[in-house]
Structure formats: structure tokens, C-alpha cells
Computed example of a mutant assay.
Amino acid sequence: MMKTEGEMWVCGSCGAEKPREADGESGMVTTEGQQEGEIVDLSESEEDARPTTEAHCPECGNDRAFWEMKQIRSADESETRFFTCTECGHKWREDDH
């Protein structure tokens, strides 16, 4: 990330320098003058935001589960759908028998 030092842009990693240009900087977004935002913990609400579907849990018999798709094989094969029971948290795959 480049930072300003007087009339130069200076890379914080390697120290490379580049002269500043007022015309080019007019459209840039900087962190200068910005207020720090409040950090919000979404960990509890995150689980409720996942999509659910009708799926029978093999452990407790519940009929709702969170689901997600993951590519676990090569790219030319279809994704695998994973379920997590909304009641007991048991996890299983769509192709498990």
C-alpha cells in the first residue's frame, strides 16, 4: 500500500517512491480523515442467515437443515451439497446413503 510522504508516494513494503500528481489523486479513496467504524459481532446471527431446506436428519428426525454447496472434486464434476440439522447440528452430505 502506498502512503504519502510530502510530495512522494512511498510503498510501505519495499520503499519504492513515485511523485504525487494532484490530477490523478482527485478520484482516489483514502483512509485519511475517516472515522473508525464500530466492530459488530455477527457470529450468533450468522448461523440464522444460512439458507435452509426441507431435509430429513438421520440422527434426530428433524425435517429442516441448513445447506451449502462445495466443490470437493475436480472442476468438471458437480458440487456436493452439505446439510447441517437445524435442531441437533448433525452434518451429512447429499450423496451419503
Rank of each mutant, 00 (worst) to 15 (best):
E54N: 11
E38D: 13
M69Q: 15
T52H: 06
C57P: 05
F82W: 01
G37A: 09
D41V: 08
P58D: 01
E79A: 08
R81M: 08
A75K: 15
M69P: 03
C85S: 00
E44N: 07
N62Y: 07
M69K: 14
F83G: 03
T86L: 01
S74H: 13
L42I: 12
P58H: 07
D48A: 13
P51S: 09
D63E: 11
P58G: 02
S74W: 13
G33P: 06
K70T: 10
A65T: 03
T86P: 01
C85P: 01
R64E: 11
F66K: 06
Q71S: 10
G37S: 04
R50Y: 07
P58W: 06
D76Y: 11
I39R: 11
A49I: 06
I39D: 10
R73D: 14
R81V: 07
R50K: 12
A65W: 02
L42D: 09
E46R: 08
E44T: 06
K70A: 11
I39Y: 09
A55V: 10
Q71H: 11
T53P: 02
H56I: 09
T86M: 05
A65C: 08
E68W: 15
A49G: 04
A55F: 00
E46S: 13
S74Q: 14
E47T: 14
T52R: 09
Q71V: 09
I39S: 14
D48L: 12
F82R: 02
F66E: 06
V40S: 00
S43I: 02
S74A: 13
E79G: 03
E77S: 10
S78P: 14
E36F: 07
I39F: 12
T86S: 02
S43D: 03
D76I: 06
F82E: 04
E87S: 02
T84Y: 05
G33S: 01
P58L: 05
Q35H: 14
E79P: 00
D48P: 04
R73C: 10
K70V: 12
P51T: 05
G37P: 06
N62D: 03
E68I: 15
Q35L: 15
E54R: 08
K70N: 04
G33C: 07
D48N: 10
F82P: 07
A49M: 05
D63F: 04
C88S: 05
F66I: 07
